[in-house]
C-alpha cells in the first residue's frame, strides 16, 4: 500500500514535469517574433529599438534551457512572470481566481454526483420502463445540450423570467446556484449513464445468478451486489468529469461574470498574453494530475482486486 502510494506519487511528479515542458514548449514555439507582438500589444510603435528592448526584458536572448529553468524555478515559487498585456504580475490575483474556480468545480462535482446517482438509480430500479426512459431521455438531453446554451437558458429562466437567482458575479451562495447547475448538467448526464449501464452490466454477471439463487430480491441485489461493483467505475468517471470541468469553467465563468482561472485563460488566449496562457495551462495540467492521483487512490480503496495487485 505504502509502496503503491509512493510509486504513484513519483509517477505524478514525472507527469508534472512533463506538463511544465509542454507548457513551455508551446509558448516558445509561437510563430512570429514575440517581442514585436508584445511591443504592439503594449500599444507602442514597434520600432526596432523598442522591440530590442522588449526582447532583452523578457530574456529572449538567453539559451532555451536557461529560460526553461528560470521559468520553472519561478513557477514553482508561484511566480508566473509579468503579463505581456497589462504589465502586472500574472500571479497577482491567481489565488483569488483559483478560489473562484475551485468553488465552481467542487460545487458542480457535488451536484453532478447527486444528480447522476439519482437519475442512474431511477433507471436501474425500473429498467426499460417509464422511469428508465425518462432518465435516459434526460441524460441524452443533458449530454447533447451545449453548456453555453444551458447557461443562457438558466439565466433566462431563473434570473430574467423568475428572479430567483442572480446571474452576475461571484457573491454569496445564491449566486453559486446557477453556475453550479450549468456546469453540472453534462457530467450528471454522463454519470447517470455510467451508473445505469454499470448496474445493468453488473446485474447481468454470473454472481447475480448466485445472489438470485439465495432468494434475494431485486432491490437487495442491486444494492448489495451490483452497487459495490460499480463504485470504482463511478469514481473513475467522476474523476474524468471533474477534469473536464476546467474546460467548462472557461465557458461558464465569463457567462456569469466570474473572475476565475477559466476566465483568465480565455482572456489570455484572446489577447495572446502568453504568460497568462502558460500559467493557467500549468495550473490546469497540475489539477488533472492531482485529480488522477486522488482517483487512483480512491479506486485502490474501493476495489479489492486492484488493492491486491499492489499490496
Amino acid at each position: 500500500m505504502i509502496h503503491f502510494i509512493s510509486k504513484r506519487l513519483r509517477h505524478s511528479l514525472v507527469l508534472l514535469f512533463m506538463a511544465s515542458l509542454v507548457c513551455f514548449t508551446l509558448v516558445v514555439s509561437a510563430p512570429g517574433n514575440v517581442a514585436v507582438l508584445i511591443a504592439e500589444l503594449r500599444g507602442a510603435v514597434a520600432t526596432p529599438g523598442y522591440v530590442e528592448k522588449v526582447a532583452e526584458e523578457i530574456g529572449l536572448h538567453k539559451p532555451l534551457l536557461m529560460r526553461y529553468a528560470g521559468w520553472l524555478g519561478d513557477a514553482v515559487r508561484g511566480d508566473f512572470g509579468i503579463s505581456y498585456r497589462t504589465g502586472q504580475e500574472v500571479s497577482a490575483d491567481l489565488p483569488k481566481r483559483m478560489l473562484v474556480t475551485g468553488t465552481l468545480i467542487v460545487g458542480s462535482a457535488v451536484v453532478a454526483t447527486l444528480l447522476g446517482l439519482a437519475l442512474g438509480f431511477l433507471g436501474a430500479f425500473w429498467p426499460y420502463r417509464l422511469p428508465d426512459r425518462v432518465s435516459r431521455g434526460l441524460a441524452l438531453l443533458g449530454a447533447s445540450t451545449p453548456t453555453f446554451f444551458v447557461g443562457a437558458l438558466m439565466i433566462y429562466g431563473f434570473s430574467v423570467t423568475f428572479q430567483l437567482f442572480p446571474s452576475f458575479g461571484f457573491g454569496g451562495p445564491e449566486s453559486w446556484v446557477l453556475p453550479w447547475v450549468t456546469v453540472a448538467v453534462l457530467p450528471a448526464a454522463v454519470l447517470s449513464r455510467v451508473v445505469r449501464v454499470g448496474l445493468e452490466e453488473a446485474m447481468a454477471s454470473p454472481f447475480v445468478l448466485t445472489a438470485k439463487s439465495k432468494g434475494l430480491g431485486r432491490t437487495a441485489i442491486l444494492f448489495r451486489d451490483a452497487l459495490p461493483n460499480i463504485i470504482p467505475v463511478f469514481i473513475n468517471a467522476l474523476g474524468t468529469q471533474v477534469g473536464l470541468m476546467t474546460a467548462t469553467a472557461i465557458i461558464v465563468e465569463p457567462l456569469f461574470a466570474w473572475q476565475g482561472v477559466g476566465d483568465y485563460f480565455l482572456q489570455g488566449v484572446k489577447f495572446r498574453d502568453f504568460m497568462v496562457v502558460q500559467a493557467c495551462l500549468l495550473i490546469f495540467l497540475a489539477f488533472f494530475i492531482v485529480v488522477n492521483l486522488i482517483v487512483d487512490l480512491a479506486v485502490l480503496m474501493t476495489d479489492p482486486r486492484v488493492r491486491r495487485q499492489w499490496s
Binding site: 454470473p206 454472481f207 448466485t210 432468494g215 430480491g217 448489495r224 451486489d225 463504485i231 476495489d303 479489492p304
Partner: peptide, 24 residues
C-alpha cells in the same frame, strides 16, 4: 418462487470463479 430459492433449495454452480461477488 423467490421464497423457495435459497430457503428450500440450495444451488451450486459450474464456475466458482464467477459465481461469487468479487468485491464482497
Amino acid at each position: 418462487i423467490r421464497k423457495v430459492r435459497g430457503k428450500s433449495i440450495g444451488f451450486i454452480f459450474q464456475d466458482p470463479m464467477s459465481a461469487l461477488n468479487p468485491v464482497r
